[in-house]
Structure formats: structure tokens, C-alpha cells
Design a protein around this nucleic acid. Structure first.
Length: 494
RNA sequence: GGCCGGAUAGCUCAAUGGUAGAGCAGUUGACUUUUAAUCAAUUGGUUCGGGGUUCGAGUCCCCGUCCGGCCA
């Protein structure tokens, strides 16, 4: 091994250079992917181990990916990224001898995983640093990291190679970790209220519980078609029938519809059902749940938006009746006595796109709500007394046959969480299903109606779009920014 | 599905229709407390693909692919 390897000749090929280094490591008898390393601490532990005024701290052993490499002759500073953050380490020829020049300087690269051991000290600028006395390469990276300062900007690559985004874009790492902490907090909150977490099927023969086009698939063994679920609702209610009177599920649902910054074809829903409660009970539940998640995951209930406004999640939340919002926005006290044609004409005046001819009357009104009112509901607002046509699974309001006992919780200009006083009259439920199904009566979930006939306790039910909640709490611009691996068109050239 | 914008070195980005460049990363060297380290030298290009206009196309035109935004 006397001939000098010519890295210069291949220096334009970043991968070839690293493969050559890999070969040199192996030629020297080292396994570049050796596993063992006793990690005793993470980066976030280190500052507290070296209190102010103390010269030298205890020995620590950390591990992670090299994300910065500053070589200055016989001493070098290296930043190592682990799950908790970045730890600076100080490598010197004095401490490491010949290995410093022959191994550390020649064969390690940005992106490599290393284990590092040494005592903590403070640099002259005050940064707590590991004075390395021992280190080991744990995994060689054969490809370079994206640029260290600008990070990774190409949106497609951010989503397709999220691991690179996580390594170099701190903001992405922080945001996606916040999502996990939000979900963790929600689970703890519901457990503390006596809810049982359950898992229900994702393959449904009838995709019910919401109005959405499902993804379809086929089960070979039974030779029958299934749909991926579009909601969790109907199985969780079967749990209520069975006496599990506080249940929740956090699960993936699939809707074969639009794809936009606010819509992902697969997204995560929380649904919770509490027997002997109703939609008013769900108001308190969801408000406490979101406030708790915000405090635990973010440490605050004040969310700054990009336009400078602040969403205040603390305290009580506004309530507004759907009809009042419509009357206020259209400026027409007689709105609900107008014919469909008059409403469509009014939509034109309000600057809305032409409603489609096959729309029902209530759909025209709901277009006003969806396009002109919901986007303006930035501060938390419970929209109540919603027209019954919009949800066939809720109880009719006593004293007003046109509305249902529900709320739509809107924050940040979008619906975050609907909740109902759940319909438990099997006769009324069947009628509502049949109206909704129209010509497609095979879409009525008879199995669910059978369960209802066995008796379901009165209950409040709540759904929370977890992705949208994460968008709200983290200030993300796009739902895909809070989903680790968003659905994408398959890559053309792998 | 419609309209608009984009695709150039590993990454982030430049380039009146006239020799494709910079920073970072890489390579070589100097440097024992750096903080986007610094300094010197240096490698690296099917300008997304195909066609057209032109003496000449990264740039203009057409078709396609992919991505993003707005709308449906």
C-alpha cells in the first residue's frame, strides 16, 4: 500500500472520493459500518453537565452525524448532530496522535456518523465542547450533504428525500418533531380523561362516516372489493354500542380527492366519542385538548401567523350560529327564504364562481360559508346550528328541524374539528343515510344500522384533523410540511 | 382539469441571442479555541428531454416530462 491514492483525479466525483476513502478504511482493517458505540449522553444533556464557573466537566460519550467540520491544522472543531441537537467536539493531534492526521483528517467527511468520547470543557467563546480522547467512525456517508447554509430548497427533493431535509433544515426537524409531541400530548390528555385508545379497521366494505370518494382495492382471498376508510366514525360508535363508553382512535384516513396545500390524500384523524355527553361537552373537550397540546408542545397558546396576526388559543372561544354568519356575510336577512335561483344570483354579486347547476339549495349556501366566511375565521370559533343536510350522523336540534346539534371548530381560516351530538335513533339514522345515498343505496352501512338497533348510548363525538392542527400550531405553510413523507407521484428516475 | 411560474455543477443561485459563472461542498497545501472559520491553488456542466428559428440558443418558438402556486 505504498502508492498514493489519487483523490485529485476523481475529486469532481464526490461519491467516488468517498468510495475510495471507504476502500482505504477497509484496507487498513477498519469496518466503516461498525455498530458498537456506547452513547451515554445526547447533545442537549451537555450544557447542564458543565455549570458556569466549572473548568472541566465529566466524560461524555455522544454519537451522531458530522454536520460541520472545521479543520485548523493540528486542531479541529466538529459539530455532531443527534436527536436532541448539535454537539461541538474538539479533535486535536495532541490527544489523538497520528490517528488525527492519518484517519480523522484524511478519511472522515461531512455526513459521516461518528461516536465521540471525552470530557466537557468550555471554549473561549463559551460553547460547551467535548475534548475528544476517543472516537470511532460508525457509518460512512457515500454521498454529500446539501449545502450547509442555504440548506435544501428544492421542494420536490425536500419531500422525496426528507432525510436530507431533516439533517440540514433545522426548521423542518423542529416542525416535524413538534407534530409528534402534539400527538403525544393529545394521547396523554385523552387517557387522563378515561378514554380508551382503540384500533379499528382501515379496510371497509362500505366507506362511511363522511362524504368523500374512497380509494378502492381488492381483497383476493375473499374475492371482494374493499375501500380504504374515509373516516373512523362508524366503528368507534360500534364500540359505544359495546359499552366502551369513552373511546378514541388516532388513525390514517384516505380520501381520493383533491391535492392541495390543505389537502393530503392520506391524513391523520383523531376521533373521540364520549357517552352521556353531547356536542357542548365536546366544546370543552376540544378546547382543553388543543390548549393542552399547544402548551405542552410549544409552551404557549399564542400562535404568530406569517402575516403578523396572532391566534390566541387561550381562554374561552367564540361561538357563532351558522345562519347568523350567513345572514351577516350576505347582508340579506331573508336569505333562507330565497329560492335557489335567487341565492345563485346573489353568489354572483358576492363575487363567487358560478355554482354548479346540479347543486342542492343548501350547497349554494354552504359555498358562501366555505368561500367567504370560513377563511375569515382566524381566531378559534365554534360554528353551531349547522344545516342538517351537511351531516347525516348528528342529532336534529330540538325546536329547529332544519339544524343539527353540532359545531365546526374553525381556526386559522379552516375547519379544524367538527363535533356532534351523535345520532342514536336507528330509524332517523336510516332515513338520513338513505337521503344521503340517493341512488346509491348500496352505500348504506347496514351493519352499522344493525349495531344502532342494539342501542347506542347518547354521546358526543369529536373529530380533529391532526395535520391541520399541526399546520396551525407550527405555522407551516403547507400540509405536506407536517407530514414526514407526503404522497408524491412516483419518481421517474430513481 | 384550467391558468401562471420554474427546471443551469453534489447543494444554493447567476449569466442583453455572442467563450456557461459564483458561493458552499470536493481535491491539494498552510493554520492548536473555530462559530457560514480563514488564506492560497484547483477539479467539476448532456443548461430536464425532443424538435424548430438563427451565422450563433441556457436565453426565442413548439411539443413533452416533472415540480410549485392560484383556481376548479
Amino acid at each position: 500500500m505504498s502508492e498514493k491514492p489519487d483523490l485529485n483525479a476523481i475529486s469532481h466525483d464526490l461519491r467516488a472520493v468517498r468510495l475510495e476513502k471507504l476502500a482505504q478504511l477497509r484496507a487498513a482493517g477498519e469496518d466503516p459500518f461498525r455498530a458498537e458505540w456506547d452513547q451515554t449522553h445526547v447533545a442537549a444533556d451537555c450544557p447542564s453537565l458543565l455549570p458556569e464557573g466549572v473548568e472541566e466537566g465529566p466524560e461524555v460519550s455522544v454519537a451522531g452525524r458530522i454536520v460541520a467540520l472545521r479543520v485548523m491544522g493540528k486542531a479541529s472543531f466538529v459539530k455532531v448532530l443527534d436527536r436532541s441537537g448539535v454537539q461541538q467536539c474538539y479533535f486535536t493531534r495532541d490527544a489523538l496522535g497520528d490517528r488525527y492526521d492519518a484517519h480523522f483528517k484524511k478519511l472522515l467527511d461531512l455526513g459521516d456518523f461518528v461516536g465521540v468520547r471525552g470530557r466537557l470543557f468550555r471554549t473561549k467563546t463559551g460553547e460547551v465542547t467535548v475534548r475528544v480522547t476517543e472516537y470511532r467512525l460508525l457509518a460512512k456517508a457515500l454521498r454529500p450533504l446539501p449545502e450547509k447554509w442555504a440548506g435544501l430548497a428544492d421542494q420536490d427533493q425536500v419531500y422525496r428525500q426528507r432525510y436530507l431535509d431533516l439533517v440540514v433544515n433545522e426548521e423542518s426537524r423542529r416542525r416535524l418533531m413538534a407534530r409528534s409531541r402534539i400527538i403525544e400530548s393529545i394521547r396523554r390528555f385523552l387517557w387522563s380523561r378515561g378514554f380508551l385508545e382503540v384500533e379499528t379497521p382501515a379496510l371497509h366494505s362500505v366507506a362511511g362516516g363522511a362524504a368523500a370518494r374512497p380509494f378502492q382495492t381488492h381483497f383476493n382471498a375473499l374475492d371482494c372489493d374493499f375501500n380504504l376508510r374515509i373516516a373512523l366514525e362508524l366503528h368507534l360508535k360500534r364500540c359505544l354500542v359495546g359499552g366502551l363508553d369513552r373511546v378514541f382512535e388516532i388513525g390514517r384516513v384516505f380520501r381520493n380527492e383533491g391535492y392541495s396545500p390543505r389537502h393530503s390524500p392520506e391524513f391523520t384523524m383523531l376521533e373521540a366519542y364520549q357517552a352521556y355527553s353531547d356536542y357542548r361537552g365536546m366544546m370543552e373537550l376540544v378546547r382543553s385538548l388543543i390548549q393542552t397540546a399547544a402548551r405542552e408542545a410549544l409552551g404557549t397558546t399564542s400562535i404568530a401567523r406569517h402575516d403578523g396576526t396572532v391566534i390566541e388559543l387561550g381562554g374561552e372561544w367564540r361561538e357563532a350560529k351558522y345562519k347568523d354568519l350567513i345572514l351577516e356575510r350576505t347582508g340579506d336577512p331573508q336569505w333562507f327564504s330565497r329560492t335557489k335561483e335567487e341565492k345563485i344570483a346573489a353568489c354572483r354579486v358576492l363575487g363567487l364562481e358560478e355554482p354548479r347547476a346540479d347543486w342542492e339549495d343548501y350547497e349554494v349556501t354552504n359555498e358562501v360559508f366555505g368561500k367567504l366566511i370560513e377563511p375569515t375565521l382566524i381566531q378559534p370559533t365554534f360554528v353551531t346550528h349547522v344545516p342538517k343536510e351537511l351531516c347525516p350522523l348528528a342529532k336534529i336540534t330540538r325546536g329547529d328541524a332544519t339544524t343539527i346539534d353540532v359545531f365546526e371548530l374553525c381556526i386559522n381560516g379552516q375547519e379544524i374539528a367538527p363535533a356532534y351530538s351523535e345520532q342514536n335513533d336507528p330509524g332517523v339514522q336510516r332515513e338520513m343515510f338513505q337521503i344521503q345515498a340517493g341512488a346509491e343505496q348500496h352505500k348504506v352501512d347496514e351493519d352499522f344500522l344493525l349495531a344502532l338497533e342494539h342501542g347506542m348510548p347518547p354521546a358526543g363525538g369529536l373529530g380533529v384533523g391532526i395535520d391541520r392542527l399541526a399546520v396551525l400550531l407550527t405555522g407551516a405553510a403547507n400540509i405536506r410540511d407536517v407530514i414526514l413523507f407526503p404522497t408524491l407521484r412516483p419518481s421517474a428516475n430513481p
